[in-house]
Design a protein around this nucleic acid. Structure first.
Lengths: 264, 264
DNA sequence: GTGGTATGGTGGTCATACCAATTAGTCTTC
DNA sequence: GAAGACTAATTGGTATGACCACCATACCAC
């Protein structure tokens, strides 16, 4: 007796869905603070009560965090379930790092191509902004800021492509990288020449993007990440070498001055 | 430094905890209806606003179900899983489902190409095994088994490509799909013709794989998933149509045989 | 029986006010 | 000049009281 479909129009749930989608599209990035409840309710054309009901739902889902005097923040987490097994894997198997970059090469190459085809003005602008910030940071020798802008650049391209699933996964991988595992990566890249090369490659990607050339954009992105693999291998080899010489030195030092070390 | 942690919780959260506990202790059994919000708020000594905030989180957790004119009921479900952000998004935004398949198209297309190049014998064998299992299941009309073998087939190809990061992510997505969202997907695919088409496409993928032809394999895989998108849209549209005709039919049947209906 | 219609209860939404926590700016004080 | 105390603005949290839309029931007229 299939008569009634029934769709209850719940205004709070609609508001929650809207905010959820914004988070998924990374318009609201993890760590961002939302506008105040009063302003938000006004802008959405609903009462603060209903807005709060929506926020309540999202908070229960763990997407938002609210602190009393401060405000509402988008939860840093977002990496739903994907990251934990991966994190263990990458921690235990250094070789997996190359697979990681290959994976990124695939999805970011496709994203670059897609972005070249139909990215809107604001998306292009945020890509360019990240690129400029990175170039400036590298020029100033601020490598922390450069690394941050680097990540921002790549993320902006994925966002410009507009696939919410891809965005979520890229975001997960990025936050995963930024906690713990990346230190070897970051520490290996204190070479100014390498940074300059990376910036040049970014410039090439951006040019293809702005020209609307999909395939060149993809190729530029993939070349860029392939270069990173090479860089990685090279520094990994050097680290081993360096490690050896350091141990040799340490051994010499210990031999000449056998002191006790603090255990804990 | 065992200072008292101070349980300065929200009043709403405290209320939610209390109700949650009642449900857990089965004082409130599934299916029970709670007292009205006004009465409940009065009895708990809090305002209806705060009480509603508590109910909101409990509803978001799936413990309670509220219907407008009726009242609040304890959910029958009980085991309604806590979902992840991506899962909720897919549930609330149907458009995101296409993004999901597009993402799979990208990584599985690349995996198929890679597998065509250098997959070892055992990997090929497990792909073929999954394919045969699916074909047999479809032939026998066992659609559950077919769906399972279907997933197995795709997973085997990703595994054959050998990128551990890709494998992890594909697996995460698959388990995510297998709980909850997929029912609409599965239920829309009880069409034997569609299943036969899917099997034929799998056969084509497998052939390209065995022939070692990378690009045809990629294309076959992407065509396959594009077909799934089309199928999805088509069934979504047809559901609407079918709904109408069924109602028309039901109406005719009822007219000619006006029997009594069971209420519950 | 049928359909209409009061009626009281229910959740949903709203506007307004006030409380409490946080933050930042300013001022004091040493 | 710097550490600390005070002040003011903004934020989320709670409380009221009201109104609406919905649902179930009982009642009424046909």
């Amino acid at each position: 007796m299939p008569f009634t479909p029934v769709a209850a129009a719940n205004i709070a749930e609609a508001a929650a869905a809207q905010i959820r989608e914004l988070i998924a599209h990374d318009v609201l990035a993890p760590g961002d603070t939302l506008p105040g409840e009063r302003a938000l309710a006004a802008r959405m054309g609903i009462s603060r009560t209903s807005l709060r009901a929506a926020l309540q739902t999202l908070t229960a889902e763990g997407l938002l965090i609210s602190r009393h005097g401060s405000g509402l923040r988008v939860a840093e987490d977002t990496a739903g379930g994907i990251s934990e097994p991966l994190e263990r894997l990458l921690a235990s198997t250094p070789d997996a790092f190359e697979d990681y970059i290959r994976f990124r090469s695939l999805i970011e190459g496709a994203s670059a191509a897609e972005a070249a085809r139909h990215a809107d003005r604001t998306a292009r602008a945020s890509i360019a902004r990240a690129h400029d910030a990175m170039a400036a940071a590298v020029g100033a020798g601020a490598l922390d800021a450069a690394a941050w802008a680097d990540a921002e650049f790549h993320m902006a391209i994925v966002e410009a492509a507009g696939n919410v699933v891809t965005i979520q996964i890229a975001r997960s991988l990025q936050t995963l990288m930024q906690r713990g595992i990346a230190q070897s990566h970051a520490e290996s890249q204190d070479d100014p020449e390498a940074w300059a090369a990376l910036v040049a490659q970014h410039t090439r990607i951006l040019a293809a993007l702005d020209a609307g050339e999909a395939e060149p954009a993809r190729r530029a992105m993939q070349d860029h990440l392939t270069f990173q693999i090479a860089l990685l291998r090279q520094t990994a080899a050097r680290v081993r070498q360096q490690d050896l010489s350091e141990r040799r030195l340490a051994w010499g030092a210990e031999k000449s001055a056998p002191k006790a070390r603090d255990g804990t």
